[in-house]
């Protein structure tokens, strides 16, 4: 059984093929309108996330498939004390593929051990979020024409931001990529990831102010400082406004910069930036629908097939 738990379950070649398919679906959605008729996607959200859940459901519905599931654990039998693995065993009898989000890290691996159908990790705590990474990669490739030699600035909560962790892992596989890590000391990238970059000889620098580095960036990836990741409310209040992108700051950047954000934003990007042609975060949302269509299509087609994936 093949699953997508971590972006590194996919080879660079497989990601390329997924992005090719996603871009084709973006250009010619009518060709795929009935391609998954009769198939069922279950969206199991043990932690609410309207945006990610809707993107998966939209992707499946756009291909003529059906969806079922629950938007939060209180509307599932988890509220009665059922274990994750029992829920998965049950639901996998009702569907062809599962997209799940869970607040605990590693939950999709535990789920994959008992599932009869492929599992897509739609986010597990602060750990991984591979479909957001596929969305980000599709956006970068569409906007910049490729990945090689790009300088990526990652800004905000780099400690708990799972989208950042997955993106660093994925982008580190392309030659010539450099990272600029813009974060307060409290929210720096975890040590295991900076160690990983050092081991692979990938250049990175850690800075505290975005103004100093903006002119050098190809991509500025902004993140939200999330209240739910803090144990202490005072720390959250102190840090949440530290990194806000405004038109004044954006004026320091080159024309080639693209500003991305996994959304939802709170106030880290001023709405005045939205109409700047360099702001592509709403295109990112659109791309997320098509790359998920591509992923669902491939995973259903290759279930038990020859392509790489997380094996258990």
């Amino acid at each position: 059984m093949r699953h997508l738990i971590d972006i590194s379950d996919l080879s660079v070649a497989e990601i390329d093929r997924l992005l090719d398919l996603g871009e084709d679906m973006l250009r010619r959605p009518e060709d795929y309108r009935r391609s998954q008729q009769g198939r069922i996607l279950a969206t199991l959200f043990f932690e609410p996330s309207t945006r990610t859940r809707l993107s998966f459901e939209s992707a499946m519905l756009s291909m003529g498939g059906s969806v079922l599931g629950f938007p939060s654990p209180d509307s599932s039998s988890t509220a009665k004390g059922e274990s994750l693995q029992d829920t998965i065993r049950t639901v996998s009898c009702y569907c062809d593929i599962i997209a799940m989000r869970h607040p605990k890290e590693g939950a999709p691996i535990a789920a994959a051990m008992k599932s009869e159908v492929p599992i897509i990790n739609a986010g597990d705590g602060g750990h991984n979020h591979p479909t957001q990474t596929l969305t980000d990669l599709m956006t970068i490739r569409l906007e910049k024409g490729g990945f090689e030699g790009l300088t990526l600035g990652l800004c905000g909560d780099l400690k708990f931001g799972r989208t950042v962790h997955s993106l660093v892992t994925a982008m580190s596989r392309y030659p010539g990529v450099r990272f600029v890590l813009i974060a307060p000391p409290e929210l720096r990238l975890p040590g295991y990831l900076t160690a990983f970059l050092r081991e692979k000889g990938i250049p990175y620098e850690e800075v505290e102010h975005m103004e100093d580095v903006l002119p050098r960036l190809d991509i500025l990836y902004m993140t939200r400082v999330q209240r739910e990741r803090f144990f202490n409310e005072a720390d959250y209040v102190r840090l949440k406004d530290t990194y806000v992108l405004t038109p004044d700051k954006l004026a320091l950047a080159g024309e080639g910069l693209r500003v991305m954000h996994p959304l939802p934003r709170v106030n880290e990007i001023s709405p005045k930036v939205d109409d700047d042609p360099r702001a592509v975060y709403f295109k990112q949302v659109r791309n997320g629908r098509y790359v998920r269509m591509a992923l669902i299509t491939r995973m259903l087609a290759e279930n038990g097939g020859e392509e790489a994936g997380h094996e258990h």
Partner: peptide, 29 residues
């Protein structure tokens, strides 16, 4: 934040990540 703190019947599995430094990582998280 690991799933093993919540799901009672999971085996605790650790995978050797760095033999030289004798570092193991949780299979799940």
């Amino acid at each position: 934040r690991c799933i093993t703190t919540q799901e009672a019947n999971l085996d605790q599995v650790f995978v050797l990540a760095d033999p030289a430094r004798k570092i193991y990582r949780c299979l799940y998280c």
